[in-house]
Design a protein around this nucleic acid. Sequence first.
DNA 1: CGCGTTTGACCCGCGC
DNA 2: GCGCGGGTCAAACGCG
Length: 336
Amino acid sequence: MSRENRELYHHDHHFLRDRNDLPFHDDLSPFFSQRPGTGASQELQGFFHLQAASPYMNITEYLHGSSDYGLLSKGFNTSCSSPEMFGPRDGGLVKRELVVDTSIGTNLNVSTGGGDGGTTPLTPNSSVSSSSSEAAGEEDSGRCKKDQLKVEEEEKQQLKGSEEGGDKSKKVSKPRKKAEKRQRQPRFAFMTKSEVDHLEDGYRWRKYGQKAVKNSPYPRSYYRCTTQKCSVKKRVERSYQDPTIVITTYEGQHTHQSPATIRGSTHILAPPPTMPMSFRQDFLMHQMPQLSASSQQGEANPSMYLPTLPPLQQPQFPDYGLLQDIVPSFIHNKQP
DNA sequence: CGCGTTTGACCCGCGC
DNA sequence: GCGCGGGTCAAACGCG
């Protein structure tokens, strides 16, 4: 590790320890903190509050303890924090905060054991918006009809238009396909301390858009998985409050293995089968950016990241032992 | 030539 | 109804 990196490491440490104003974007903050009755000014505190107040609600427990998506969803909704992960990558330094949002999506609320998948209020400390999943469902069903009608209408108009020979706009010569309603997928957000915007996660992404973010000098980039029939998307934006923080939001589940995984790194970190595929892969890829990046280049070298962990936290896996080890350590750091 | 990025325009939902 | 902002499309462009 270079001297520069070492300095960054210390900086990062301070960041975690001292900053109580973790930066979130307006649109992301609701994912992380949805406590009713809290003002906007408390959005940021909300997330931190959760980290501190829910020491036993970490992703590892859900990986271990839940055999159904409902519980997993609950846990995700509660917000999870990942360990600090340091290591040189792409010439930059990467540290990660893991935050999971499934409040928008409905896919995770698959038949929960207790039937409380999206409706059971959690602890007062949790940030769960239990109604959002339901609402999303209703919304979806409502919108579906609407959209279908719209599509039919558009088709009619298109026919009309072609008959009349009118092309009002050059740009939109082809009407967009809207047969399929835009469905909200489960989202999964990471906060990453990184110098690079687009982080390697083992998948291939194609950028399909970029938008300026309101109240932020940094644009938001939209990526889509390049694999055919895989509709996973991700948004990448830089926090306007702390430009060193990159917020990556995944949406959807990969219908395939990651290229990096295929190349033989799965035996090192086999995620639990209970975790949705994309979450498992993305999560692990994000926990092991160095690994995924290096394995992608055919030079897997776990020692690249192992030394960054204290001896006791060095993974004893197979399996996801690393997560198990790291998450509590991170949380312990948060304990007074 | 294929693949990925850029970028302006369009779509759509939502709040007022 | 209108405006705003987030999300997406697709043509143009760049690069290897």
